[in-house]
């Protein structure tokens, strides 16, 4: 694997993860639990779509085949998508959506902080902008997890249920493959193995404070690094890509 191939795949991984997460979050727009929260979650979705756009623009540039970010978003199949499995999971209720966000915000803040110290100028630029946004997102999601854990019996039950459904998808966030190896040699990627313990500590503290029971051991769902997804991604793409695919020569 060449360095260029690795960087292309790495940037797709980050771009796709942002794109699919934002696509899921924006399903809440107009349907939030109350107006202020509707606006807040939409704002978060907007930040993450913005990041997805920058990353896919860069991926297209790295690939150097004359494509645009829209070509990458709308004309790739599920097997060519590398978003983390956790992002494509259905929103469920608000507790599940918020908990997924807390898991990812916690990961992303550490990840983009590390990425801002690597050697690729474009990725560093995107990271610096993202850190500010994610800091706010994390404050939002963490504060809601605590509210649910310490709110009512029902909110705690729902939080635990969301946790049980999402927990098996968290391990995959830290997986590395040949792409990471190639880039790490040149200081172009983040060593994910170094993030895991810190993430587990922070999330463990949050869950303890929120009275969520964490199992001793768990199995891990995996596959996205190879473009292997859950059944959900096919539907997300079918919907998201329908218009450009129906009118492949059109400009919008």
């Amino acid at each position: 694997m060449t360095k260029q191939e690795a960087l292309f795949n790495y940037t797709l991984r980050l771009g796709d993860t942002s794109l699919i997460l934002a696509q899921r979050l924006s399903e809440w727009t107009g349907h939030g639990p109350f107006l202020e929260e509707d606006l807040a979650l939409t704002n978060i979705a907007l930040d993450i779509f913005g990041r997805a756009k920058s990353l896919l623009e860069y991926a297209a540039k790295v690939e150097n085949k004359g494509k645009t970010e829209d070509d990458l978003a709308f004309f790739r199949n599920d097997r060519e998508y590398f978003n983390a499995l956790i992002t494509e999971q259905p929103n469920g209720d608000y507790a599940k959506t918020i908990l997924r966000q807390a898991f990812i915000d916690c990961f992303d803040l550490m990840f983009y902080t590390e990425l801002s110290n690597t050697k690729d100028a474009t990725l560093v630029g995107i990271s610096q902008k993202s850190i500010k946004e994610i800091t706010y997102h994390k404050r939002h999601s963490f504060s809601w997890v605590k509210r649910f854990g310490n709110g009512t019996e029902e909110s705690l039950t729902r939080l635990q249920q969301g946790f049980d459904e999402l927990w098996p998808f968290t391990g995959e966030l830290f997986e590395m493959n040949e792409v990471d190896e190639v880039l790490l040699k040149d200081g172009l990627a983040v060593d994910l193995s170094r993030l895991k313990a810190v993430w587990e500590k922070e999330i463990g503290d949050l869950l303890n404070e929120s009275h969520v029971q964490i199992p001793e051991s768990t199995y891990i769902q995996t596959g996205s690094r190879k473009g292997l997804h859950s059944e959900h991604l096919g539907y997300i793409l079918a919907e998201m890509q329908s218009l450009p695919r129906m009118h492949p020569t059109a400009k919008w």
Partner: peptide, 12 residues
């Protein structure tokens, strides 16, 4: 659907 969310926030 948001009722329990608002109730949780109020209780907290």
């Amino acid at each position: 659907d948001g009722e329990w969310v608002r109730a949780a926030a109020a209780a907290y």
